[in-house]
């Protein structure tokens, strides 16, 4: 029981931490790291709450969901990293302009 809530809280913590970092950092690589940390937080919540209570079997559906999520996350990360390189080539910086162009 303790394990469940402990890891769930860590998951929530990672989610908020990632969200905070995503909003305050300007470097794109760091934003991508932040998104990945947020994702790990969500996955942790999903699996922790499915952990078995004393001797029972764990619920396999969230496990499958998280595996799906991990593959989606690596796909998105790869696309984002390739995009960062292109942005850098075109603009000379790996950051977004502060104001969206008007």
């Amino acid at each position: 029981m303790n394990t469940v809530y402990l890891y769930t809280m860590v998951g929530v913590g990672l989610f908020t931490l990632g969200l905070y970092a995503l909003l305050i950092h300007s470097h794109l690589l760091r934003k991508i790291l932040a998104i990945n940390v947020m994702g790990s937080g969500v996955f942790l919540v999903l699996v922790a709450l499915a952990a078995p209570t004393q001797g029972a079997v764990p619920d396999p559906v969230p496990h499958a969901m998280v595996i799906t999520g991990i593959v989606v996350a690596v796909s998105a990360t790869a696309l984002a990293l390739a995009l960062v390189l292109r942005v850098r080539t075109e603009t000379g910086r790996a950051e977004l302009p502060e104001e969206p162009l008007e």
Binding site: T3, Y7, L29, I32, L33, N36, S40, F43, V47, A48, A50, A51, P52, P58, H63, A64, V66, I67, I70, V71, V74, T77, A78, L81, V84, L85
Partner: peptide, 25 residues
Amino acid sequence: LDAPDVALAEAAIGAGLTGALLLAT
């Protein structure tokens, strides 16, 4: 958390391939 399937996926993708991707970028 008794999720060995996820642990395998994380070890291979999360810690392994994503790390290599980030380093290369």
